[in-house]
Amino acid sequence: MHALECDHLSKTYTSGVRGRREIQALQDLTLTIGRGEIFSLLGPNGAGKTTCVKILLSLVHPTTGSASLLGLPVSNPHARRRIGYLPENHRFPGYLTGEQVLSSFGALTGVRGPELATRTTQLLGMVGMQDWRKVKVKRYSKGMMQRLGLAQALINDPEVLFLDEPTDGVDPVGRKEIRDVLRTLKAAGKTIFLNSHLLSEVELVSDRVAILDHGKLLKVGTVDELTTTDSSYHIGIEGTVPAAFVTEATARVLGVTAGADGLTARVADVPALNTVIDLLRAHGVSITSVQKQRNTLEESFIDLITREVQS
């Protein structure tokens, strides 16, 4: 049984007189997420990420398709018994203290009595909010609200955790702490569904990533799969790149760029790469390494979105 399954999910929002204006927020999304994975959903604003999460949490009804959480249809409230959710821009009632937020929202998930009290203390300690437990949340900063939100999402010891921009407003130290919490949760076998604009953060923690744009799933895979380029290689050499080689190679492959410790060759296929290597040898250059080049997740993301816009 998968942690999450989306089967041909589509969502069209209607507005205006008689619903004449239609916005297709999600188009035929099919996705499965295994247990124990940290899965991230990326996409520009309006890509459909939040709609996807909201459908999975039954906050939004899909127009077509279906989705399930831990084997139960998302429309079944019991499906949410073993999930935790940290929404983006969440608002806890200002009249509650941090401790009361956890006890109140914990009670809504079915956790009670001594277990609730123990988890409240444990989680406030984990997110570094122990000293603020008796303070009303209306006095909390954005970062503190995020920490409390994370604790709230974990109050029922969920199997699946949805985090929407969890590090939003959190300082760098706090961000690292949250990343560490995510790794601990993953080690404990929890499934984490992450929505974040901070691609460097996503890259650090995610097992798999999906990229959405205009409601369509463009690509899904591991971080390695998404960041490894098919056509670029870094070739390490001893000495400097001869200018004559650059001119000759540029005419025969997609591109060659000389750098301090070697060169980057963009080639159409492996034979073209061998052509570059042969040319280097012909120019008497000693080769020390050949490596497929990796982009950062951000570069891959921008590249993919740009290509989608152009197409």
Binding site: K54, L59, A79, R81, Y85, P87, H90, R91, L108, T109
Partner: peptide
């Protein structure tokens, strides 16, 4: 969002 994501 906080309310509706609970098993209620």
């Amino acid at each position: 969002d906080l309310y509706l994501s609970k098993p209620i």
